[in-house]
Simulated assay, not measured.
Amino acid sequence: MAETAPDMLGVTVCYATSKEEFLRPLRVAPGTTIGQAIEMSGVLEAYPDINLTTQPVGIYAKKKTLDTVLRERDRIEIYRPLVADPKESRRKRAAKRESAPDRTGG
């Protein structure tokens, strides 16, 4: 009968592209960091375009550093760069609404 280490933590490493997602549950030792878990998960081999120097990471949508120590049930997320600047997108939508003809009859 195999022994299980009760002090191991259950975490998940997540990364998504526009076409697929990577979800890898891991058992890690206490004291493991985000960076270490990402390396253990295999995501960097599966997606060689990931650059941890420039891409932010986080736990449950809160940005964290690679040296953040993990806790039980943490979901580690690697964020992709934004395709469009949200502020610029809002400006374009607002300009489009302002230039549209007034349909209220007034």
Rank of each mutant, 00 (worst) to 15 (best):
I78F: 07
T32S: 15
D7H: 05
P86V: 11
V28R: 01
A29W: 04
L70I: 06
V57Y: 01
D102Y: 14
N51P: 04
Q55P: 00
E3I: 07
G35N: 07
R91A: 14
S41K: 00
E88Y: 07
G10D: 05
E20T: 14
G105Y: 12
E20A: 15
A37V: 06
R73Q: 13
P25E: 10
Y79C: 03
K92L: 12
K92M: 09
R91Q: 10
V28G: 04
P86G: 13
L44M: 09
P30K: 13
T32I: 08
A16D: 07
V57W: 01
K62P: 04
A37H: 05
E88V: 15
L23F: 12
Y79R: 02
I59V: 15
A94T: 14
R93H: 11
I76L: 09
A84Y: 09
I59F: 11
S89N: 12
R97E: 15
R71N: 10
P101R: 08
V13P: 03
E20F: 05
E98P: 01
P86D: 11
E45K: 12
G35F: 03
A16P: 06
T33D: 06
A94L: 12
K63P: 00
E3Y: 06
A2G: 10
V83Q: 12
P86K: 08
S89G: 12
A37Y: 04
V11A: 07
A100H: 12
S89E: 13
E3G: 11
A61C: 11
R71H: 14
V57D: 00
F22K: 01
K64G: 00
R71Y: 04
M40P: 00
G31C: 09
D7Q: 07
D67F: 02
L26N: 04
D102Q: 09
L52S: 01
F22G: 00
M8I: 02
G42I: 07
A29E: 11
P81E: 09
F22M: 05
L44H: 05
K62V: 15
R93V: 11
D85Q: 11
S18R: 14
V13E: 02
V28I: 06
A95W: 07
A46V: 00
K62D: 06
R24P: 01
P81R: 06
Y79T: 08
F22D: 01
L9W: 00
M40E: 08
P25R: 07
G31S: 08
K62L: 13
L52H: 02
L66E: 05
I34A: 03
L66W: 03
V57P: 01
K64S: 04
L23H: 14
D102L: 10
K92P: 08
K96V: 04
R80P: 02
R75N: 15
P86N: 11
G10M: 03
